[in-house]
Structures are given as C-alpha cells and as structure tokens.
C-alpha cells in the first residue's frame, strides 16, 4: 500500500529527482537542486533573524547597552558593499578573527599539539600484544610521515636515510586509503537512508 501522505510524496519525488543525477544531469535534478537551495536559503535567513532576536535584541531590550556595540559591528559588515566606506567592514572582521582565535588557540594547542605528542611518546610496550603493535605502528608512522616533509636537508630523501620518507609516504597513503574507505561508507550510509525511506515510508513494502 503506497503512502497517501502528500508530504511523503513530495519527499519521495525530491529524493528520486536528486539521486537521478547519478545517471545523467536532467531537469528533475535541476528542479530538486534549485528547490533545495531556495529552501536552505530561506531557512538560513529565518534562523539568522531568530538568532539576532534571541541572542542580541532580547539583551538590548533588557537594558544591556553593550549590545549596541554588537549591532553596530554587525551593520558595519555591510559597508563592504559601499564604494566609499567599504573599509569600515574591516573592523568587525578584525573583531571576529581576534575573537575566534582567542577562544580556540589555547585549547587547540593543548588538544592538538601537547596531548597528541604526549600520547605518541607513550611506551612502545603495552599491556596487550595488539596494544604494543598499535603503539609501534603509531610511533613509526608519526616519525616517518614527519620525515617526509623535511625539505631543508636534501640528504633526507637519499640513500639509507631516504627509507624514512618512503615509509612515511606509504603511511600517509594508508591513512588516505582509510579515509577514502570511510568516505565511501558515509556516502552509502546517506544514500541507503533515503532508499529505506522510499521503501518504508513511501512504498510501504518493508517494516
């Protein structure tokens, strides 16, 4: 029994239209693509206005006058489109960049640098055989992959020393392979989600 819900039919049509691109570009795909862009842009505007209202305007209305500065910076972003006063937009951009860097840089160094080095420098011999193998692979992988990017000393890529960067390149390729495999799985995961929707919600032939 096929669904009688018009919402399901619209979703089914757009799913089929969007995935039809896998075969050839066509008008149904273009329609789905343009519809998606229109809906996404509309949704983005609504959510943007809602955020300005909830996290900016409401504070201003409660008497927090510092938010005048925030709104002023926001308006200055639009100066970019003015031929004479375009330079004004640099101030809010500078504020955004400074704020973003300030919020993340300390934690970024701690998480991505200090703790990762500490983890890599852990003893090679672990409590289990697999743990030891993992630690050795990680240690060899990090050292050789880093050596692949040493370009200031030419001898690094020649003769016996050259084996380090070569192994490092293989390590990088293995990581890229793992990434590619995961990407394929992700894409199929998304596609099969829509196929399950078509079979269950639209055609109602699976439970």
């Amino acid at each position: 029994m096929v669904s009688m819900d018009p919402q399901i039919w619209i979703a089914a049509f757009l799913t089929l239209a969007a995935t039809s691109y896998a075969f050839r570009d066509n008008k149904a795909f273009k329609f789905a693509e343009n519809t998606f862009i229109g809906v996404a842009a509309g949704h983005q505007i609504v959510m943007g206005v809602k955020n300005i209202r909830d996290y900016g305007w409401s504070h201003l209305m409660q008497g927090e006058m510092i938010y005048i500065v925030v709104f002023l910076l926001g308006v200055m972003l639009y100066a970019r489109y003015h031929k004479e006063y375009y330079w004004l937009y640099r101030y809010p951009i500078a504020f955004l960049v400074g704020n973003g860097v300030g919020i993340s840089i300390r934690a970024g160094i701690h998480s991505d640098f200090t703790l990762q080095i500490a983890e890599t420098a852990s003893p090679l011999i672990a409590s289990t055989a697999m743990g030891s193998i993992n630690n050795i692979i990680t240690f060899v992988g990090v050292i050789t992959a880093l050596s692949h990017f040493i370009f200031t000393y030419e001898g690094m890529h020649k003769d016996t020393l050259g084996w380090g960067p070569k192994i490092g390149r293989w390590m990088i390729l293995l990581a890229l392979g793992a990434s590619f495999g995961n990407t394929v799985m992700t894409r199929f995961g998304m596609y099969q989600g829509r196929v399950i929707f078509l079979l269950r919600e639209w055609l109602q032939i699976i439970a």
Binding site: S104, R106, A107, H110, S111, S179, N182, T183, T186, G189
Partner: peptide, 27 residues
C-alpha cells in the same frame, strides 16, 4: 567535533562523548 574537545575538555575538563560521520573518524 574539534570545537567541543577544545571548549569542553581542554577549557573546562568536562568528559566528552562524540559522534561523527565515518569519513571524519580518521581525523
């Protein structure tokens, strides 16, 4: 995904559970 590690773990020492797409898992 990185942001929560930076802000919740590094900044405030909160334990974290994460979920991401498979294609992000290696990073």
């Amino acid at each position: 995904a990185e942001g929560w590690v930076y802000q919740a773990y590094s900044q405030y020492d909160r334990p974290i559970l994460g979920g991401c797409l498979s294609m992000m898992t290696t990073s």
